[in-house]
Computed example of a mutant assay.
Amino acid sequence: MSEIPSTTFLQRLRAAFLASAKALWPKPFSIDYRERLRASCGAALGILVAALGGIWLAHGSGDAGRGALAAALVAPLGASAVLVFAVPASPLAQPWPVIGGNTLSALVGIACARWIPDAAFAAALAVGVAIALMLALRCLHPPGGASALLMVLINCHDFGFALEPVLLDSALLVAAGLLYNNLTRRRWPHVERAVAAEPESGHLRRLDLDAALARYNQILDVSRDDLEALLEEAEAAAYQRTLGDLRCGQAMTPAPVTARADMSLRQAWGLMRSHKVKALPVIDNQHHLVGIVTVADFMRQVDLDAHEGLTHRLRALFRQAKSRLQPAAHTVGQIMSRQVRVSSTDRLLIDLVPVFSEGGHRHIPIIDGQRRLVGIITQSDLIKTLYAAVRT
């Protein structure tokens, strides 16, 4: 019996260890194998161009022995190649950060190696000053820190080393990146778009993004334009998930109250009042939609310039309808709107937003393939359905 607690404790310890290890394991990159192959081949090509070009330009020969290669190529260039070809959209991987970051940091490292006797202090100061200089000159490049440190480690005192091979290697890598990235449909350099006038409407605006970045107060390894594009894509995906799949059939009121063309105005008005609706679709014997009568249609029949109240004027209209002397407007068919904006059950609900907001419509009958009435959507139905979808 004494072994059971021990076994349980070991199982819990093992589960906790596995959970911790799983949390430390990075998530997979969201790129396909074609992009992985493109980045790997590009980095190999970039280093090859820098190595052969550096040897030939510096020594005037094609001898690619290890000694010549060590003199013509600097190690931080490998990290630069990762950025240029694997993450070409990064602000840290653009031409000026690659050239300026590596070269200026190498100059800082050489100065520290020459003028600071203590090697450890020189190494620390070289990396710190290099970062400060790169930030000031907008050329922050992570391999630049390695360039500054390398100059101290090899105790380089020659400022010319920052020009050849550091500057030369960086320029050759940038040339290879310009050719390869653009040939493989990766825009490089990633130039920031010009700021255009923003529309007054819209969920996400540049000022909102700028304010959020200011509060975040950290350098992101993604350009501002790309971040904006990603947020717009995410917003579009969220819209499609919440609103994009809603259909009219999900928002409509089925089996609405209807009228017939030969129904008297008094009966139609009574239906509207008893059911508390402001429109009645008008159908024929086969349930086909032939028109719609609304409160506005009734109001057009009333003399609105008269001083009597609305109720008095409507009663006068119904008395006139009962009179045989003036039979001009005594049935629904005589005042209804025959040109009706309709929709189908499978139509996207979001398509009706401009119909309601800009077209001046208040009621949209829903019909089937045989033009038979199956429901109606009002502004209230639209707002209620969209609000419910956003909240979920």
Rank of each mutant, 00 (worst) to 15 (best):
residue 301 Q to E: 15
residue 264 S to T: 15
residue 280 L to M: 07
residue 210 D to E: 14
residue 218 Q to Y: 06
residue 217 N to L: 09
residue 260 R to M: 07
residue 289 L to G: 03
residue 195 V to Q: 15
residue 286 Q to M: 09
residue 286 Q to A: 14
residue 308 E to W: 01
residue 223 S to T: 15
residue 266 R to M: 11
residue 300 R to K: 13
residue 256 P to K: 01
residue 223 S to G: 15
residue 209 L to Q: 05
residue 192 E to Y: 04
residue 257 V to R: 13
residue 212 A to W: 12
residue 208 D to M: 11
residue 292 I to K: 03
residue 259 A to L: 02
residue 231 L to P: 03
residue 305 D to N: 12
residue 209 L to H: 00
residue 224 R to T: 06
residue 294 T to N: 00
residue 198 E to K: 05
residue 222 V to W: 02
residue 235 E to D: 11
residue 235 E to V: 07
residue 234 A to C: 10
residue 271 L to R: 15
residue 295 V to H: 04
residue 229 A to P: 00
residue 247 R to W: 00
residue 248 C to G: 01
residue 301 Q to C: 14
residue 278 K to C: 03
residue 308 E to T: 14
residue 297 D to F: 04
residue 249 G to T: 00
residue 215 R to A: 10
residue 211 A to N: 10
residue 219 I to W: 10
residue 234 A to M: 12
residue 192 E to C: 01
residue 232 E to T: 09
residue 308 E to D: 14
residue 244 G to V: 06
residue 210 D to G: 04
residue 227 L to K: 01
residue 248 C to Y: 02
residue 282 V to R: 01
residue 235 E to K: 08
residue 267 Q to K: 12
residue 283 I to N: 01
residue 256 P to S: 10
residue 283 I to R: 04
residue 289 L to F: 04
residue 271 L to D: 06
residue 291 G to N: 03
residue 199 P to N: 10
residue 278 K to Q: 11
residue 269 W to Y: 12
residue 231 L to A: 12
residue 295 V to N: 06
residue 312 H to E: 14
residue 264 S to I: 03
residue 249 G to S: 02
residue 314 L to T: 03
residue 193 R to W: 03
residue 293 V to N: 00
residue 298 F to T: 02
residue 310 L to V: 12
residue 200 E to A: 09
residue 279 A to C: 08
residue 265 L to T: 01
residue 242 T to P: 04
residue 202 G to Q: 10
residue 209 L to I: 15
residue 286 Q to S: 13
residue 308 E to K: 05
residue 248 C to H: 03
residue 204 L to C: 07
residue 197 A to Q: 12
residue 205 R to A: 08
residue 277 V to R: 00
residue 226 D to N: 11
residue 218 Q to F: 10
residue 292 I to V: 13
residue 281 P to T: 00
residue 298 F to Y: 06
residue 221 D to M: 05
residue 290 V to R: 06
residue 230 L to T: 12
residue 253 T to I: 08
residue 296 A to S: 11
residue 273 R to K: 13
residue 194 A to C: 05
residue 220 L to W: 07
residue 254 P to G: 08
residue 224 R to S: 01
residue 300 R to T: 10
residue 281 P to N: 10
residue 267 Q to L: 11
residue 252 M to I: 08
residue 268 A to T: 01
residue 241 R to C: 00
residue 198 E to A: 15
residue 255 A to P: 02
residue 286 Q to R: 13
residue 211 A to C: 06
residue 311 T to C: 05
residue 235 E to S: 14
residue 218 Q to C: 09
residue 310 L to N: 07
residue 313 R to M: 01
residue 252 M to C: 07
residue 223 S to P: 03
residue 300 R to E: 15
residue 276 K to T: 11
residue 295 V to P: 02
residue 276 K to C: 06
residue 206 R to S: 07
residue 314 L to D: 02
residue 217 N to F: 09
residue 197 A to W: 08
residue 201 S to T: 13
residue 246 L to D: 00
residue 299 M to A: 12
residue 303 D to P: 05
residue 246 L to P: 04
residue 276 K to D: 10
residue 314 L to E: 02
residue 300 R to A: 14
residue 194 A to H: 10
residue 213 L to W: 05
residue 234 A to Q: 12
residue 262 D to T: 14
residue 258 T to R: 09
residue 250 Q to S: 06
residue 212 A to L: 15
residue 235 E to W: 08
residue 211 A to L: 11
residue 281 P to M: 02
residue 263 M to E: 15
residue 215 R to E: 09
residue 244 G to S: 05
residue 301 Q to S: 10
